[in-house]
């Protein structure tokens, strides 16, 4: 599947969401190759996609970055990323990004009718995600709040 059709809408959406919601400029975006597993930096939000294409969207960052984003959103201080509000904040960011991106994809290619499952948030040590159809490349964004990585796994539904 052409990454211009799958990954690019998510890159555009991330860019605009981080600018509008958090006032964070993405200073540099670079492609990072992944092996057969997606290595998490410590905090990952996953949003499922179904329709004519199905797959997953991953939003990944360090626990410190997740805490920072939650602090910007709520104005409160958190000492751990396992706090429920930090998890909820991370889920909300991924939900907005993927919502914008699939609206874009559905508008460009009417009939695909992609829909989202609710986000699930995982945080821990030494996390890795395994998916049979993992995209070989992630995109790593550098921001003032830390590095944020996204990956899109997509395949045509049978």
């Amino acid at each position: 599947m052409d990454p211009n059709q799958t990954l690019a809408p998510f890159i555009r959406a991330s860019n605009s969401v981080f600018k509008q919601m958090f006032d964070l400029e993405i200073s540099k975006g670079q492609v990072q190759s992944e092996g057969d597993t997606f290595i998490s930096q410590g905090f990952t939000v996953m949003v499922g996609l179904t329709g004519k294409w199905n797959g997953w969207f991953f939003l990944d960052m360090t626990q410190a970055t997740a805490i920072k984003l939650a602090q910007i959103m709520t104005g409160e201080e958190y000492d751990t990323a396992a706090n429920e509000e930090v998890l909820l904040a991370g889920g909300e960011v991924a939900n907005i990004i993927s919502g914008n991106a699939i609206t874009d994809i559905n508008n460009l290619q009417p009939g695909l009718n992609i829909r989202l499952s609710p986000p699930s948030i995982f945080t821990g040590e030494g996390m890795s995600m395994f998916n049979v159809r993992l995209n070989a490349c992630s995109v790593l964004f550098q921001t003032e709040a830390g590095n944020i990585k996204i990956n899109v796994v997509m395949k045509e539904a049978n």
Partner: peptide
């Protein structure tokens, strides 16, 4: 959606909020 396996230690998670 297709399955994805998450492997890690000391994990905390929130499923579907």
């Amino acid at each position: 959606t297709p399955p994805t396996l998450i492997h890690g230690y000391n994990m905390a998670s929130l499923i579907s909020q």
